[in-house]
Computed example of a mutant assay.
Amino acid sequence: MGLGISRLIGLKATVLFLAFAYLRGLGLTLLPVPLLFASVVDFLVSIASHPSINLPLFLGKSTDGILPLWSRILFGPFLYFVRIFGWLRRLRSKEPPYTEICEGLYVGGWPYSVDTLPPGDPAVIDCTCELPRSEVIMRNAYLCIPTWDTRAPQPGEIESAVGWACRKRAQKRPVFIHCAFAIGLHKMAAIVDLLKPGLVLFVGHGRSVAVMCALIVALGMAEDWKNAEKIIQERRPCIRMNALHRKSLEEWSKHRLSSKRTDELGVSSVILSAASGSSRSKS
């Protein structure tokens, strides 16, 4: 299982630190300082995004999707790197900003403008921890499930998102689930492989797709998350879920099935208890 963003940002931190050390070796004093600061920030992000820690709240994104001023200052080198890389990615990409998977269900990237937001005043589920709530969706119904890029929402977070989305669909509102445009893709993966052979870099769209898989199952449009993934893949071929996303969906599915069995057993015991009481009263 690759470490995805943790290794990628850790590699970037190492490069920045080496650049700092090289410039200091040339006798420069003030010029290399920003490189040292950016290196330290990236090392911290690399640690916080490691699978064994996985702390997306580290960046301080609030439940209403706002990145506070202290976070934008302290983690600026990482946050603005993500924004710039995403902007460059969009310039070269022919991928649509969103795709309708089923009627009223959309999945896509960060909605940075009105034309990148699906029609119909959709309820929005934001799966990013590194991007702020877009100004475009400030008036939309909104739920944040903060997740690192290449990481997966926890099963409980998936269930919360699914329940929220199902309530919005019951109100006949479309639902848009988004993460960010991938910060890697094939060219970045090739570069990283040259720098560090054997490093597995998960790239593609996974966080939002994992939640969409669960939602499709919950709405009865697919038998299980694997079939849901195939449905999404047919409509949005660029999706790339990794082992972490699939593991989280598998755990969500098991919990959902066990909950159903518990509910059924509860109903059955009530029926049996009522029937037993009825027979005793007749006797």
Rank of each mutant, 00 (worst) to 15 (best):
Ile47Glu: 08
Phe58Leu: 13
Ser71Asp: 14
Phe78Leu: 14
Leu79Gln: 01
Asp64Arg: 13
Leu44Met: 15
Lys61Met: 06
Gly65Phe: 00
Gly65Asn: 04
Leu55His: 11
Arg83Asp: 08
Leu57Ile: 15
Ser62Asn: 13
Ser52Gly: 10
Gly76Ile: 02
Val45Glu: 01
Pro56Thr: 02
Ser49Lys: 03
Asn54Tyr: 10
Leu44Thr: 04
Thr63Gly: 05
Ile84Cys: 02
Leu57Asp: 13
Ser52Trp: 14
Pro51Tyr: 02
Lys61Glu: 01
Tyr80Ser: 06
Leu67Met: 14
Leu74Trp: 07
Val45Ala: 08
Pro77Arg: 09
His50Gly: 04
Ile47Leu: 15
Ile84Phe: 10
Asp64Tyr: 07
Tyr80Val: 07
Gly60Phe: 01
Leu74Met: 14
Phe43Trp: 12
Thr63Phe: 09
Pro77Tyr: 04
Ser52Pro: 00
Thr63Pro: 01
Arg83His: 08
Ser49Gly: 12
Ser46Val: 06
Arg83Ala: 06
Phe81Asn: 02
Ile47Met: 12
Ile66Glu: 12
Pro68Arg: 14
Ser62Gly: 10
Ala48Thr: 10
Ile53Ser: 11
Phe43Asn: 00
Asn54Gly: 06
Val45Thr: 07
Leu57Gly: 12
Ser46Gln: 06
Ser46Phe: 04
Val45Cys: 13
Ile66Gln: 09
Arg83Lys: 14
Leu79Val: 07
Phe81Leu: 08
Thr63Leu: 13
Ile47Gly: 04
Lys61Trp: 04
His50Tyr: 15
Gly76Asn: 08
His50Cys: 11
Pro56Ala: 12
Gly65Cys: 12
Leu57Met: 15
Asn54Thr: 11
Ile53Thr: 13
Leu67Glu: 07
Phe58Cys: 15
Leu57Val: 09
Thr63Tyr: 06
Leu79Asp: 00
Ile66Leu: 12
Ile73Gly: 09
Ser49His: 00
Ser49Gln: 03
Lys61Phe: 02
Pro56Leu: 08
Phe81Gln: 03
Gly65Asp: 04
Phe58Tyr: 15
Gly76Arg: 06
Leu74Gln: 05
Val82Met: 08
Arg83Tyr: 05
Leu67Ser: 10
Ser62Leu: 06
Asn54Val: 10
